[in-house]
């Protein structure tokens, strides 16, 4: 288990608890009360820390190395039914963007999402979750295929951004994202988007237009990462905390601004602290929203989606 800097008091107490239990097992001293006290303190400390997270701390949590990634969600939700589908039919198969079909209960869904790696080797293989144009085009191909057969789409967003590479530019990164955004606004099947980690800018929105856009509690979504924002506006990397606050990038902020539809609660300690519970909550959330969306005709669905995006923005008339 890895700990973030602000989680160190938790680490300390957990270590104390472990020691206490070891003493209890290896000696005759009765440590039940001591252990109980430490446990109580641990729960309280966790509550205190996670109730008052700053924007920057949530950004840190969204990047926690133990956090579940897109494939973890898909595998848990589809219980062995997931069939991964590859390739954009033009250039290659982008490993940073995955997709495929699977069932939640009796209902088939088309899943797309950015995939990060869990160690150095797989992180490189997944290009740190930064998709190339091929990735966006693969996702679009799968979504169009879903539309053809009336299958709803679930999109998992977790990316530090679309890849800023030479080949990416040659093959039209901007065009690929633009095309996806436009096609997603008029796709004739329900789209449920879930931000499960990082939602960085156009790279996120490229698979992020939906009837329901949900954010897990400890994720972020904005037009730029706090680090890059700091480097551009403050001309230094040192102001990432202020930038994170200024950007209003947390789930509660995004909900308040009416830019997302709802927030999915995470277990105390973050999504990674109790994966099964996280998967169960996400599953319930998808099914609840799908029940609501499946009642709409394709026409109403698209109109409602277009209206939703048309109303985004704040200005003086």
């Amino acid at each position: 288990m890895e700990y973030l800097d602000f989680e160190l008091p938790i680490k300390e107490l957990e270590e104390q608890l472990d020691k206490c239990m070891v003493i209890g097992e290896e000696s005759d001293i009765d440590v039940t009360d001591t252990c109980k006290q430490i446990e109580k303190k641990l729960v309280q400390t966790k509550k205190d820390i996670y109730k008052n997270l700053t924007a920057w701390q949530r950004v840190q949590l969204s990047r926690h190395p133990s956090r579940p990634y897109t494939l973890d969600y898909i595998n848990a939700l589809t219980e062995g039914t997931f069939l991964e589908l590859h390739g954009d039919r033009s250039v290659k198969d982008d490993k940073a963007m995955i997709g495929g079909l699977g069932k939640i209960g009796d209902q088939s869904f088309m899943f797309v999402g950015q995939q990060k790696g869990y160690n150095t080797k797989t992180r490189q293989y997944r290009n740190f979750g930064m998709a190339n144009p091929e990735g966006y085009r693969k996702a679009l191909r799968l979504m169009k295929s879903a539309e053809k057969f009336g299958i709803p789409v679930v999109s998992f967003v977790d990316t530090p951004g679309a890849y800023p590479g030479i080949e990416a530019e040659e093959r039209g990164q901007g065009e690929a994202i633009a095309r996806n955004i436009m096609e997603m606004t008029r796709l004739k099947v329900p789209i449920i988007v879930i931000i499960v980690g990082e939602g960085a800018s156009g790279g996120a929105l490229g698979i992020g237009v939906g009837d329901k856009v949900l954010m897990l509690e400890n994720t972020w979504y904005s037009v730029i990462s706090p680090e890059s924002c700091s480097s551009i506006l403050w001309r230094s990397w040192e102001y990432k905390e202020q930038a994170a606050e200024a950007l209003k990038l947390t789930a509660p902020d995004m909900k308040k601004l009416h830019l997302i539809d709802s927030i999915i609660k995470e277990p105390l300690g973050g999504a990674h602290s109790d994966r099964e519970k996280t998967f169960a909550t996400v599953r319930d959330s998808i099914l609840t929203h799908f029940e609501e969306l499946k009642k709409l005709s394709p026409k109403d669905l698209v109109n409602q989606r277009m209206d939703k995006y048309s109303n985004m923005g704040v200005y003086k008339d």
Partner: peptide, 11 residues
């Protein structure tokens, strides 16, 4: 305008 400006892409 942070995410508000991002959503103008979709709009």
């Amino acid at each position: 305008e942070a995410a508000l400006s991002l959503m103008q892409l979709a709009k």
